[in-house]
């Protein structure tokens, strides 16, 4: 995909970010001073609590009326306003890139996440992950789409190699957005555990293809593994196809079940429909995104 096309996708995603936002309103966050409600006391206008004065407290927040009534120093505590932290992780394995529609949808979700985080005033850390490899991408590289080159330089993986998020330096209590098709073998626990480590809030945006969810295979096929490039001759008959569909369903059922256990939102987003329509199917209902009000 050329830079112009990527820029077009980024523009569409940015426009979508004017409609959709990250679900940052329902939780308290830690971080630098910002617009979001923090978990501690701060200097916002929102009153939070009273407490006894302790040496070192800011004398400007002494409640002089209470001192007049009681003779004791008490402090007025106001809500802290912080900038939330968003850790965005993009799975750049080849399974995300082998199909034109899926690639476009992945880029749309990535740029949507970036712009939604920026628009929310969050501090954004962006990581690219490919199997056990990862790297952090600077915002400039994202805006100039240079990250694509960096992603391409990540070492290749074996077929269906699971994304290893454990080594990523997620910030405590950050929101962790993971854009991945989740098409790798193994237990979801390591990924989900990493997303929720340190009281993090995990959201998975999972693009998928119709040809993956409901293929119309019938007969002999030479399947090319998207990541390893290996070729496999398979004969798919109706019974085999039925069992494949069942395995596919069970795979994502497991992710959703464990996602609920880890309190990670998993929203599957089809690649074929336009982005807004695709997001309305599951991302909004599952709370992975919200509409600006």
């Amino acid at each position: 995909m050329d830079a112009k096309a990527v820029a077009g996708i980024a523009s569409r995603a940015q426009a979508a970010a004017d409609i959709y936002r990250l679900p940052l309103q329902h939780r308290v966050w830690r971080g630098q001073v910002g617009d979001m409600q923090g978990s501690g006391a701060g200097s916002s206008l929102d009153f939070q609590d009273h407490r006894s004065y302790l040496p070192g407290d800011d004398p400007r927040h002494i409640n002089w009326q209470a001192y007049a009534r009681t003779g004791n120093y008490s402090m007025k505590l106001y809500r802290e306003e912080v900038r939330p932290m968003v850790d965005l992780v993009l799975d750049v394995s080849d399974s995300m890139d082998f199909d034109e529609a899926k690639r476009a949808r992945v880029l749309e979700l990535f740029y949507l996440s970036v712009h939604a985080a920026i628009k929310s005033g969050a501090t954004l850390h962006t990581y690219l992950v490919k199997g056990s490899s990862h790297l952090r991408v600077q915002e400039d590289a994202i805006h100039h789409h240079a990250w694509l080159t960096e992603a391409a330089n990540l070492p290749a993986t074996g077929p269906a190699a699971p994304a290893d998020l454990r080594a990523l330096p997620f910030r405590a209590q950050s929101m962790r957005l993971f854009v991945s098709d989740l098409l790798f073998s193994g237990s979801p626990d390591p990924v989900l555990g990493a997303l929720t480590r340190g009281r993090g809030r995990g959201i998975i945006l999972c693009p998928f293809l119709q040809s993956e969810a409901a293929p119309e295979w019938d007969g002999n096929y030479e399947f090319v593994e998207a990541e390893a490039g290996t070729r496999h001759h398979h004969r798919v008959e109706r019974s085999i196809l039925k069992r494949y569909l069942e395995a596919y369903r069970r795979h994502f059922e497991l992710w959703k079940t464990l996602g609920r256990k880890y309190d990670v939102i998993l929203a599957r987003i089809p690649s074929a429909p336009p982005l807004q329509k695709a997001l309305q199917l599951e991302a909004l209902s599952m709370g992975a995104l919200e509409v600006w009000t």
Binding site: D181, F223, V224, R235, H251
Partner: peptide
């Protein structure tokens, strides 16, 4: 045999051996 690039081969490999090779 039709050549198809897929990302879900690991799901197919879990199925019975009958599907492993074409006839």
């Amino acid at each position: 045999a039709r050549t198809v690039t897929i990302s879900t081969l690991f799901l197919l490999d879990q199925l019975q051996k009958q599907s492993l090779t074409g006839r």
